[in-house]
Design a protein around this nucleic acid. Structure first.
Lengths: 103, 103
DNA sequence: CCTATAGTTCGATTATATACGTACTATCAT
DNA sequence: ATGATAGTACGTATATAATCGAACTATAGG
């Protein structure tokens, strides 16, 4: 039996701004989003910063549920990307604002 | 003896984007921010939507701590405003993005 | 001075998140 | 098949946050 051949990614229309803000308000997740903004695509392990796999898995799940990250399965790795265009369409300017902050 | 003659409002430079996002991610607080964006200035009671005073006081405290809201004491009322300019300077585009969302 | 009003503070409860070890699943290489 | 690798799922512990009643503080008005 096979679970996890592919992921469910929510329609951005069903994601509230509160939901998105909450997902972005965690330092670990914000860091993931920042890296995906730069690196375009990365495996979970590439972004873990030494944190345990189960913790990272949790954060990726939250990011997916908030419509922010897309994950595709590529062999043994799960490659993540920012859902830039869709997020920008649903929440114009949000990612620019969040990712543009220094300090 | 007198506490509470005036409020402490943090310098925006000390507020992180995570902190601001967290403050905005709560529905009650986001609603407060939305109303302040329209009404310019309002007392706590004017924005309570029927919720208990102690709950509202908590949310205003979080908003103040995140540098988003300024409160001045005017007699028996505490009048709140959005710290628009300062927040815009620290997090350009954030409030526009958050307040501009429909649905 | 007494009372009403607007908010705060305290404290307890409950809900929601985070963190992460362990066990499990899927894929790939040998 | 075996073993290695990447990540998920589950369970539990812990931390953080929301809710709100009750007691308190400050101000205004009679």
């Amino acid at each position: 039996m096979s679970a996890m051949r592919t992921y469910q990614h929510p329609d951005l229309a069903t994601v509230t701004i509160e939901h998105a803000l909450h997902a972005l308000s965690d330092p670990v997740r914000l860091d993931i989003v920042r890296q995906l903004d730069r690196e375009i695509e990365a495996s979970c392990a590439a972004l873990d910063g030494g944190r345990p796999k189960s913790s990272m898995s949790h954060h990726f799940r939250v990011l997916r549920a908030a419509g922010l990250v897309h994950t595709r399965i590529a062999g043994v790795q799960h490659m993540n990307t920012l859902r830039r265009e869709e997020v920008d369409k649903r929440f114009p300017g949000l990612l620019d604002a969040v990712l543009g902050v220094k300090g």
